[in-house]
Every structure is written in C-alpha cells, then in structure tokens.
Amino acid sequence: MSSVTLFPMSKVDRIQRALGFVALIGLLATVGFGLVWTPPDQFMGNLVRLIYIHPPLAWVGFIAYGMNFLTSLAYLWPRTRDLRWDQLAGASAEVGVLFTGLVLVTGSIWGRPAWGTWWTWDPLLTTTALLFVLYLGYLALRRVPDDPKLRARRSAIAALIAFIDVPVVYFAVLWWKSLHQAPTVLNPLTHKTYIHGSMAWTLLLGFVAFTATYAWMLMIRYRLGADEQQARVADVVLALHERQEEGR
C-alpha cells in the first residue's frame, strides 16, 4: 500500500529533513545579509539587493532543466531504463518551471527601475521566457493520463526536443537582436566590478541556499510522485479485489 510513513523516520526522511534545514537556514541568512547587513550600491541603491536572489534563481532553473535532460536520457537508454528516472525528470522540470517563473518576475521588478521598462526583447530575457513556455508544455504533456511506461517514453522524448531547442532559440534571438539594434541594454552583471566584499559573499550564499532549496523541493516532489504512483496501483488492486468478491 502507500509508502507514506510519518514515523519512525527512515534514512531518506532524515536526509530530506537535513536538506530542508540547510535550505531554510541558507535562505534566512540570504534574507538577513541581502536586506540588512550589506550596504546599498553606490549607483543602484537598494535595487542591487535583487542581485542576491535573481542570478541564483536562474542558476537553479538551469540545473533543474539539465537534470531533466540527463534523467530523460537515462530513461531512454535501454540499460538504465527505470521509471524512477522518469519521475525524477518530472519533479525536476516542475521545480525548474517554478524557478524560471520567479526569474522572470524578479527580472521584471529589476528592469522597471533600472531600465525603465518591465520587459525588453533582450536575448537572455526572451530565451528565458521561451524556456518557461517550453517546459510548461512539457508539464502539460506529462499530465496526460496513460500507461506509465508509455507516458515516460513520450515525456523523455519531449524533454529531449525541448532541451535541444534551447541553444537554437538563444542564437536565433541573439542574431535577431544584434541585426537590429546595438546591445546597449544595461547589464546587471557589469556591476559586479563594483561589488563590495560582503555583497559577493551574500551572492555566493544565495547560490548555495537556492541550490539546497532546489534539492529539497526535488526530493519532496520525487517522493510524492512515487507515493502517488503506489497509491494508484493500490487503488487498482483494491478495485480488482472488490470485483472478485462481487463475483463470488
């Protein structure tokens, strides 16, 4: 039956709890350093504080999609074919989409005061937005009910199609822009040259904290998926028994 065991704690539960603890402490520390203990930027003022979360969010998006690609490949490769890879791929894409959405939102919040607009057709921005939609489609495809093995193969191939598309989209958008208008957009990363010691450390802390958060969320989502799968199988077995009882 269902593997939901709240008590006693297994080894996996302990790892999950430890990860969650690290993530929580990391995020609290990032908030503390980012909002209180670091100085405002000489030019950007308090706006610079967004830099402690925006790049780490984007980074998590990239590792989430990278993980989705690798686990999909592992599923397609006959020797490593296992439904657990498929569940991991789905969990990673879900977390990735959430973080990409947050990247777009925090980017917009940065863009409005820094560039004077919520949105520009900058190559990185446009690619990120397309990435978001691409993987939303992938998640929608995953929700289509079917036999788990068929669904896994279908999803894995869709994941490959999406992942391979990302560099093509990026170059297309890059050339598309560069042909029309000089890339004069203010790049937030150029401000790194003025970055204060404590600011650099806070940014690094942000990366660590968000990566731990990703790992924690991935783990929870993966285990939830496995439980859902088991519950579904249990339901079918139960229904079968009931029909058999009726027949007697």
Binding site: L130, V133, L134, L136, G137, Y138, A140, L141, V144, A158, I161, A162, D165, V168, V169, F171, A172, V173, W175, W176, L179
Partner: peptide
C-alpha cells in the same frame, strides 16, 4: 496540447524565416 508544444519549439524558424 499540440499548439502549446509546437509553437515555442519552432520559434527559431519563425524568427529566421521572417528575417
């Protein structure tokens, strides 16, 4: 579902074709 999956992937073709 087909349009949702199809359109984002072929966006480079739209850009390049138009260009």
């Amino acid at each position: 579902l087909l349009p949702l999956l199809f359109f984002p992937v072929i966006s480079p073709v739209l850009i390049a074709g138009t260009k």
